[in-house]
């Protein structure tokens, strides 16, 4: 995930529910009422790029007499709360049936977000669940990515005239049995699907259709 990666930028714009742990004057515009301070314990949605940094840094706790407390950890500005994408409901849905899950409707950048979230919290349990989800769905993606070429092959066997058949099938990307599954893919999976599909298609084109 590089600096100029557009998908990465879009992922960072996903909003995370946060709870402020300090009273901060002047930051009211985050709550859409500029000019007012932000209150302790107020909840609001912040984009990940902002929430991530605010959840790490914080004000150093200062005692009444002005000396620093050594043993007390500094309280970060905000506390991140679990976003909808990783709520118990979604986790259960993933465990139940990874393939039929509509990842795209949960979050268009589900996997990228999950990677960032896991990196932030060192969440081994979630990592295992998401890995399983990805493996299960990868099999299905492979099936769908290769399905067009099977069509091409069968029709060639029947007609024996590969030059015309291929051109009708070449653009057959979203035929009916594929489309319902493809609509549930998140952006990362779409890229995987597209690459796999292109490579299957090119390989078949090379074999059957100079």
């Amino acid at each position: 995930m590089g600096y100029y990666d557009i998908d990465d930028v879009l992922t960072d714009a996903c909003e995370i529910p946060c709870k402020f742990k300090h009273d901060i004057p002047g930051l009211g515009y985050l709550e859409n009422n500029p000019g007012k301070p932000i209150r302790n314990n107020s909840k609001l949605l912040l984009p990940l790029w902002l929430a991530r940094i605010l959840a790490i840094v914080g004000e150093d706790p200062v005692q009444e007499d002005g000396t620093m407390l050594d043993d007390a950890e500094s309280i970060p500005f905000v506390e991140l709360m679990t976003p909808d994408a990783f709520s118990a409901k979604v986790i259960n849905a993933i465990k139940a049936d990874p393939v039929s899950l509509d990842v795209h409707s949960i979050s268009p950048h589900f996997f990228a977000l999950a990677i960032k979230w896991i990196a932030l919290f060192n969440d081994k349990e979630l990592a295992a669940i998401v890995t399983e989800l990805m493996l299960q769905r990868a099999q299905e993606i492979n099936n769908h990515a290769s399905s067009v070429t099977i069509d091409v092959k069968r029709q060639i066997d029947i007609t024996g005239d590969n030059s015309t058949v291929y051109s009708t099938n070449a653009g057959n990307l979203g035929n009916n049995n594929n489309s319902t599954f493809l609509l549930t893919l998140d952006e990362f999976e779409k890229r995987v699907y597209k690459q796999a599909h292109e490579s299957y298609k090119d390989a078949k084109r090379w074999m059957y259709h100079k």
Partner: peptide
């Protein structure tokens, strides 16, 4: 080529 920020600019 800022490497100190929240995202490393050097790929």
């Amino acid at each position: 080529n800022d490497t100190e920020g929240s995202v490393n600019m050097i790929d």
